[in-house]
């Protein structure tokens, strides 16, 4: 197993220590699982479910409070999906793209806003679930599955035509794309979130007061942008796969 660890422990302040590559391992049978990722992801899922439940518990025609907020989020997601996938097909993809966005967004912001490190774990430390490569690769692979599913459902085996569509010369590149898409999706998210948390941790280590604040704000901003980018790209890939099926019949 490949592990790299960065250990910086220059000064006593409790919160300002930094470790990467240490995990809280849970053993399920002979499988190993990163416990700290699941703990925080359950918190994130709980936040999402509770706010969804509060928003739809007693829906009003004139929305108020949390219903208003969640409707704003839903409208945002629907617009995103409609812009990327198109008016005709976007409806059935809203839950998938929307859950991607909400899960990644709340995960990222939980990493930036919740002082997880105050909770002591036997090993490893709590952080955003998207801080772990397993999570981002899982999400990226799901996106791959989703766009393959979309393409095959729309065009059947005719979906393979897209690999030789303009010219068969591009076949290797077309195949390569199916690997680079999940790779870039997962590493972009993972790298951004990990790098953000590392930068904040290093700055806190060096200057504990005030100076890290702008970087933390920047971290909030990049976190939101990364969630948006992930969801937008997922929708764009799905749209691309749907296009292959759509070419026979209608315009585009």
């Amino acid at each position: 197993m490949y592990q790299s660890s960065v250990f910086i422990n220059l000064s006593p302040p409790l919160v300002a220590s930094l470790e990467v590559g240490h995990h809280l391992y849970w053993h399920l049978g002979n499988l190993k699982v990163h416990g700290q990722v699941f703990i925080t992801s359950w918190v994130v899922i709980a936040v999402l479910l509770i706010s969804a439940w509060l928003a739809t518990r007693n829906p009003q025609r004139v929305p108020q409070g949390i219903q208003n907020l969640m409707e704003y989020a839903l409208e945002f997601i629907r617009n995103l999906a409609r812009d990327q996938i198109g008016e005709k097909e976007y409806r059935s993809w809203v839950p998938f793209v929307g859950t991607l966005f909400l899960f990644i967004f709340v995960s990222n912001w939980s990493g930036a806003l919740v002082p997880w490190k105050l909770i002591e774990l036997p090993d490893g430390e709590l952080a955003a679930p998207t801080n772990d490569i397993n999570t981002t690769v899982a999400l990226a692979l799901l996106v791959s599955l989703a766009y393959f599913y979309a393409g095959f459902r729309k065009a059947g085996l005719g979906y393979f035509a897209k690999y030789i569509q303009p010219t068969p010369i591009l076949l290797p590149i077309a195949i390569l794309e199916d690997f680079t898409k999940p790779l870039s999706l997962s590493f972009r998210l993972f790298g951004n979130i990990l790098a953000d948390e590392l930068v904040v941790a290093v700055l806190v280590l060096l200057v504990p007061l005030i100076v890290p604040l702008p970087v933390m704000l920047l971290g909030l901003f990049t976190s939101a942008i990364q969630a948006l980018v992930f969801a937008t790209l997922a929708a764009a890939y799905i749209h691309e796969a749907l296009e292959v099926g759509g070419e026979h019949g209608e315009e585009h």
Binding site: M1, Y2, Q3, S4, G21, I133, N134, V137, A138, L142
Partner: peptide, 15 residues
């Protein structure tokens, strides 16, 4: 940093 294990499929299923 890049140790993949059962977290990945479980996270996918959970998602």
């Amino acid at each position: 940093m890049f140790d993949f294990d059962a977290t990945l499929p479980l996270m996918a299923g959970q998602f």
